[in-house]
Each structure stands twice: as structure tokens, then as C-alpha cells.
Nucleic acid binder design. Sequence first.
DNA 1: ATACAGCCTGGAGTATACTCCAATGTCAAG
DNA 2: CTTGACATTGGAGTATACTCCAGGCTGTAT
Lengths: 128, 128
Amino acid sequence: MQIGEVAKRTGFSTDTLRYYEKLGLIHLSRQQRGENNYRQYDEDLVNRLLLIKQTKSLGFTLKEIKLLLELEEEELLECVSVGELMQAKLKAIEQQIQALQDIQNRLHALKDLCEGDCLSTMKQVAEG
Amino acid sequence: MQIGEVAKRTGFSTDTLRYYEKLGLIHLSRQQRGENNYRQYDEDLVNRLLLIKQTKSLGFTLKEIKLLLELEEEELLECVSVGELMQAKLKAIEQQIQALQDIQNRLHALKDLCEGDCLSTMKQVAEG
DNA sequence: ATACAGCCTGGAGTATACTCCAATGTCAAG
DNA sequence: CTTGACATTGGAGTATACTCCAGGCTGTAT
């Protein structure tokens, strides 16, 4: 399978696939390429990319995903349980939600506090 | 008042103050500087900076804040009501919260679904 | 033979919001 | 008169996750 096909199947652009390779999220050695120097992908790689996609959609950064995949490769995932990583991310997400809800409340309060001209109200708040 | 004093009073670093000036969030003409070429800030400017701080903490980007302040300067804030801008931001914040809550739910579900070895579960989800 | 799609590389650009730096100038105190 | 704190500038660097591009090779169809 070559890169365009993988792009279609995973929803990543070819640029992104090459970018992930550069970051070390996926591994494609030069030996594994055909005579034409085109990248050859197999099902395992596609599955790895789909897993990356899943994990990304759960709020993990590429850096975190890389760490996670490296742990798995080195079979260290028993030491650092995936559950703990999920738990940590869950906590971070909860904090983000909390921060946004605080903003939400303040925006609501501000909107209630003033009729149309919030800015002068905000000014008073800022100056007071 | 010179830049260091303003930094203390607003909580922005001097670098940030100069950066905001470069972005056009605050205006300090060269004519207003002393003979030594140091920036001179007055109370109005400090208040403007405090307002920027408030607005920033409400989730507005510097770009949005700049637009808001420009509308105010041109006295166009009657045409585009601040309330509407707040409402729009509120909606955006709510969407962000929603997205994070979706992630939260999925993380919870995943955590419940597997005991310790979430990754293989995720793989199955990704592949299936 | 030639057009055209698809692949390759390295490197630059995008967006956001700073942060740091070097080289240099200014000012007040001892 | 020198030291130290504070100010100036332009420009580079940081983090994240791509995205785009030029210049050039490969493969297939007509």
C-alpha cells in the first residue's frame, strides 16, 4: 500500500503521514521501501495510525501519544498502567472544563449585569 | 510612569507590554516619550491594560480584543453590541466545553471497559 | 513519446502569545 | 566616575500540529 491509499484509509493527509514519520510516531525504514523509493505501508501501520487517531481525539498530544507508543513497544505498559495515563488525562480534561465553566459563569454574570454596553461595565470592574 | 512600573501594576511583563504595543493593542506615540526615549504611560493606558487583562481572562484572543477596542475607539459599539460579542464568545466556550465533555465521557467509558490494559481495547476499537 | 497523477526531499510558512537575547543608551547613588 | 538598575531596538526562539511549495523522479495510459 502506498501513501495516498493510507491517507484515504486513515483520513490523514500525505503530508501529515510524512510528518508523523519524522516525529517518530510511525516507523518506515528505507529498507522497507520498494525500488522506486516509495513508502510501503502494511495493515499494522494502518492500524497504528488509526490508534493514533483515536488517541488524538481523546485529547492526547502527539508527544504524549509518542510516549505511549514507545512504552508499548518496550513492553513497559505493565509498569505504567494505561489506566493511570487515562486517569491523568481525565483529570487534565476536567480541569480544562472547570476553567471554561468559570469563564462561562463570568460571561453570563457580565451579560446579566449590563444591557448592551458591557464594555463600560468591564472597565469599571477592571479599574475598581 | 515608565514601563517597569506599569508591568508591576498590570502583571504583564515589560516584554509583553512592548509586544502589545507592536500588535496595536495599546498606542504610545514617539512624541509622547520623554527626552530619554523611554515610554511614558498614564492612568488611562494602565486602565486599558487592565481591561485587556479582564477580557483575555474571559477567553478572548488578542486579535478579538484588538477588534473590540478598535470598535470602541471608533464609537461603533452601538452598531455591534458588546452583548452580542459576549453571546458569541459564550457560545464558543459552550462548544469547547461540550467537546471536552465528550472526550471526558469517552475516557470514562474506556476506563470502565478495560482493567489496566486500555491500549489493547483501544486498538480493537480503532481496528474494528 | 508525452501527458498527467502520484511520489520524493528539504525547507519555509501559519497561527497564537509570548519570551529571551545582544548590543547599546540612560539615570541615580556612592 | 563608575556601578547597577532600568530602558531601547530588532530579531530569534518556543510550543503545537500541521500545511504548502519547488524541483525532480516514477508509473501508467494514450
